Amino acid sequence: MATEKVLTYSRDQVTQDTFYNCGPASAQTVIRAATGRVIPESTLASAMGTTVNGTNDIANIQPVLNTYVPEGKWERQYIKGDDASNKERETLWQRVRISIDAGYGCIANIIAPPSNYPRPTYTSSVQPRYSGGTVYHYIALMGYALDGSGNRHIWVADSGFYPYGYWCSLEQMASLIAGKGYIYSTAPTVYTEPSEEEAMSQMSEQIGRIYHELTHTFQTRYKIGDKLAEYRDTMIGYVLNNDEKLTRLMDDRLPNIEKKLDDILKALKEK
């Protein structure tokens, strides 16, 4: 069973009014989903300093979100370099989930060269129609999903490219944001009692995580010189191997220890 959550938002207002209004359009989608209000792109563009060259930086959007949706308590994060590290990828996933669970979308600033145009994943099958060389773009992140195989996906509301909504893998999304940044909500999650279907889905996700921990192989920390050895095993495999080593240690050493103790006791008695 898959676990997914996509915020309810109006699809009729997703597309941007001008070729350079992707920042205002993405903010418009996030604001409308959170408040029900439709703020004109022109108003948002003016507040962000958007020009025909686009919106200069993700930092220009943060204060606009804090103005129109202050309860979202918005923060921003940059990912430096050409790609995201594992830690940055995990942080992105956690922040997107927390933001969505609190009822607020995120906004990402991406760099998409032709070799890394967004690719559809999960239940999406239509290739987003990116073109024209390297694309510098803003998109709204409006949902997340964990599929039955443990793969993670983010739902994108894309104002600039057909089909304007699609699933993208977490790994690719993190690589697209690298060199730029994203805005997320730090508002607390409002707890609601899950439905029976949601409870079953959550249980399935937890079982999936446990299964992953039991079956995923980890590289040993044992070093040969300055490099880690190539040996890999599951968590259970390492535990059983250690148990076997302990058993061998006891079988090999314990008789010798007992004999030495007997010799010591005998020597003490003789004195």
Results as ranks from 00 to 15, higher is better:
Arg221Cys: 14
Asn256Pro: 00
Asp233Ile: 07
Met1Leu: 13
Tyr184Leu: 07
Ala59Glu: 06
Arg32Asp: 10
Lys271His: 13
Glu196Val: 11
Phe19Thr: 01
Ser159Gln: 08
Ala2His: 13
Ile61Gly: 02
Ser10Ala: 15
Tyr68Pro: 00
Asp57Gly: 03
Asn241Pro: 11
Met200Trp: 10
Tyr162Glu: 15
Ile154Met: 14
Leu261Tyr: 04
Tyr211Ser: 08
Leu261Arg: 09
His137Val: 04
Arg129Asn: 14
Gly181Arg: 02
Asp82His: 01
Thr50Phe: 06
Ile236Thr: 11
Thr18Arg: 07
Val126Pro: 06
Thr220Glu: 04
Thr3Cys: 12
Lys87Tyr: 04
Asp147Asn: 12
Ser175Asn: 06
Asp147Glu: 09
Gly150Asp: 06
Gln77Leu: 12
Gly181Lys: 02
Met142Pro: 00
Ala145Gly: 08
Gly225Tyr: 09
Tyr162Arg: 14
Ser85Val: 12
Ala108Ile: 05
Ala34Lys: 13
Gly23Gln: 02
Glu75Ile: 10
Ala178Lys: 10
Ile100Asp: 06
Arg221Ser: 13
Phe218Pro: 11
Gln127Arg: 07
Leu92Trp: 08
Ala45Ile: 01
Leu265Gly: 09
Pro188Arg: 11
Pro114Arg: 07
Arg232Asp: 14
Ser149Tyr: 10
Ala112Ser: 13
Gly54Leu: 13
Arg97Cys: 15
Lys245Cys: 01
Pro194Asp: 04
Ile236Asn: 04
Ile39Met: 02
Thr15Arg: 04
Asp101Met: 09
Leu254Glu: 07
Gly23Lys: 02
Trp74Leu: 07
Cys106Arg: 10
Gly105Val: 01
Glu258Leu: 15
Thr51Glu: 07
Gly150Thr: 08
Thr67Gln: 14
Tyr184Ser: 11
Thr134Tyr: 05
Arg248Met: 15
Gly181Cys: 01
Trp167Asn: 07
Ile154Cys: 12
Thr18Val: 09
Val6Asp: 02
Gly133Trp: 10
Met173Trp: 13
Ala25Asn: 05
Tyr9Gln: 00
Tyr130Ala: 13
Leu261Glu: 10
Ile58Pro: 07
Lys260Val: 07
Ala229Arg: 08
Ile257Asp: 10
Ser85Asn: 06
Ile257Lys: 03
Glu41Phe: 03
Tyr144Asn: 13
Trp74Lys: 04
Thr134Gln: 06
Asp252Ser: 09
Val30Ile: 14
Gly23Glu: 02
Ser125Ala: 14
Val30Met: 12
Phe218Ser: 08
Thr55Tyr: 05
Gln206Lys: 12
Gln16Glu: 00
Asp57Arg: 05
Ile224Lys: 15
Tyr104Pro: 00
Val30Ala: 13
Gln16His: 02
Asp17His: 12
Glu196Pro: 13
Glu244Phe: 14
Pro63Tyr: 00
Gln206Asp: 09
Tyr136Met: 11
Leu240Arg: 14
Arg119Tyr: 12
Thr192Ile: 13
Val38Leu: 12
Thr8Cys: 11
Thr134Ala: 06
Thr55Arg: 03
Ile236Arg: 09
Ser175Gln: 12
Pro113Gly: 03
Ala267Met: 10
Met142Thr: 00
Gly208Tyr: 11
Gly132Lys: 14
Ala2Asp: 12
Thr220Ser: 09
